[in-house]
Lab assay of single mutants.
Amino acid sequence: MQRVNMIMAESPGLITICLLGYLLSAECTVFLDHENANKILNRPKRYNSGKLEEFVQGNLERECMEEKCSFEEAREVFENTERTTEFWKQYVDGDQCESNPCLNGGSCKDDINSYECWCPFGFEGKNCELDVTCNIKNGRCEQFCKNSADNKVVCSCTEGYRLAENQKSCEPAVPFPCGRVSVSQTSKLTRAETVFPDVDYVNSTEAETILDNITQSTQSFNDFTRVVGGEDAKPGQFPWQVVLNGKVDAFCGGSIVNEKWIVTAAHCVETGVKITVVAGEHNIEETEHTEQKRNVIRIIPHHNYNAAINKYNHDIALLELDEPLVLNSYVTPICIADKEYTNIFLKFGSGYVSGWGRVFHKGRSALVLQYLRVPLVDRATCLRSTKFTIYNNMFCAGFHEGGRDSCQGDSGGPHVTEVEGTSFLTGIISWGEECAMKGKYGIYTKVSRYVNWIKEKTKLT
């Protein structure tokens, strides 16, 4: 034993070699072989497995989906700052455009905790909710729209109204504003409101030439003092309507412009014939205590009207009353817009006519005020429907199939267009061939041609 100890002390290297040989010859039971080890760690190889990531292109799944990435790591994937920024906006807080917040056709661009709407022409605001041009839906104005110097929408209202708090709607500024039905039992019968379409306001006024200088022999019209197929109006439903009495009662109609003036057809009036105007009328054979009678003290036909040349060209006249009318729910003026808007309103496509005229061709006159909704007829169809001249200051309205029309005794009465609950004068009943005849239409004086003249002559002093 002493000898062994001496050998170990003198030859430590020998001992180490012996131990190493023993270990190498022993069977290893701690580690699995290569094949079995792979069965336990069965993990798919990654895209760049075996390579240094710093030297390969980034992978979106590896960089940002398996674990949260930084902007720089995302930049490695896209290799483009702009594309990385677009991805980053949604990656950080989701897609803010998912709810489609942009209105009126706006395009949404996502941002971090926010979004941006790219608005089409005519709109602005956070969600493109603000109209900035009158060309689109009248700028959301209830009545009139004008573009300011910086191309912003400025709404306005006709006389007797003021802008509401929203700067879009119009509200009454006087007790009985024009064009409004205020009798409670008839307010439910107000005709369907007309909503502004998209309009090209630059070209809204037709490029028409008034044929002022045409000389033409007097034409022989049949029954051209021209509501057939209409309905009984309720008291106060058309408070701007008046009836004219002269040699015979209810020979023509008219509309209240203001307390002192009536507008009617020029062919209705004769110099030297006494005319009485009755406002607030409903049943011409009954006294309903809503009527107001006034005498006409002055007749002003349009300066281009000449019955000797043509009885229905420039067929418009103004009547001055001896005493002002007292405005109330049964006696209310009709609204008159400017030339541009009167023309736009007419193009809405349908209007209402009213009167006490004959209820059928050569038949009896109506006792109760009649009204009828009539569609506008395109000019080409209008011209083809008659052998008589249709001037540019006239328009056609009615039904091709016949059966409904204005008729004798309705002449001078109103053709009105309702705009968001307020009625505007767009025409004056003038003439036609018979009444409600198939293929024939009622012919009306186009008020847009005469609004400046009306307003100039009827100013209240």
Results as ranks from 00 to 15, higher is better:
T461R: 08
G254I: 00
R43P: 01
S385C: 08
Y305F: 07
N245D: 06
S182P: 06
N59D: 11
F251D: 04
K234H: 13
E61M: 04
K146E: 14
N151M: 13
N452T: 13
K247M: 12
D378M: 04
E10Y: 05
K347P: 01
E285W: 10
N138K: 07
C97N: 03
P172W: 04
K168H: 13
D198V: 12
E231P: 10
Y312G: 04
E323Y: 07
Q185S: 13
G122A: 07
I214K: 11
V269D: 02
G122T: 05
Q408F: 14
T194G: 14
C97V: 03
T186R: 12
I390W: 08
S148E: 10
N48G: 02
S220Q: 11
S169L: 06
V202A: 14
C335K: 00
E82N: 09
C382S: 02
A436S: 10
S411A: 14
V296M: 02
V451S: 11
E124T: 11
C18L: 14
I284Q: 07
L24I: 08
S49C: 03
A337C: 03
V153K: 09
V154Q: 14
S255N: 04
Y305E: 00
E72R: 04
E288M: 07
N203S: 08
Q90R: 08
Y341V: 05
H303C: 04
C178Q: 02
M8P: 14
S411K: 15
E281W: 12
N147P: 11
T215Y: 07
C108K: 03
E73W: 00
I17K: 02
V154G: 07
T209V: 15
F388N: 09
S385V: 13
Y444K: 00
K39V: 07
N48I: 01
V202Q: 15
V296S: 03
N295M: 08
E142C: 03
G402D: 10
K39F: 07
E61L: 03
V4W: 09
E73P: 02
V227I: 12
E401Y: 09
H303K: 10
I112E: 14
N222E: 10
K247N: 15
A164I: 06
G403L: 10
P177G: 03
R364P: 07
K45P: 04
E159A: 10
F224W: 11
D322K: 04
G398C: 02
A265N: 03
T422A: 05
S148T: 14
T461A: 15
K293S: 08
L19N: 02
R62P: 01
F388P: 06
F360G: 12
N313A: 13
W88C: 02
H361E: 11
F224E: 07
G13N: 14
V353E: 01
I390Q: 08
T271D: 06
T332A: 10
G236T: 05
G421C: 03
N304D: 11
Q2S: 08
R180P: 02
F395N: 01
A9Q: 14
W88T: 03
R43N: 02
E66Y: 04
V228D: 10
E72W: 04
E82Y: 05
V183L: 09
N452F: 05
C69K: 00
V195I: 10
Q57A: 03
R191I: 14
T16Y: 13
S448V: 03
L103P: 04
L376C: 02
E401Q: 12
I454C: 01
R191D: 11
W356T: 05
R298L: 04
N452G: 15
K459D: 15
S99I: 10
S49Q: 10
C102I: 01
A233I: 08
K68D: 06
Y115S: 04
E171C: 05
L325D: 00
K339W: 07
Y22R: 04
C407V: 05
D322M: 03
N343K: 06
L325R: 00
C155Q: 01
N36L: 09
G398Y: 04
E208Q: 07
K126C: 06
N100V: 08
Q408G: 14
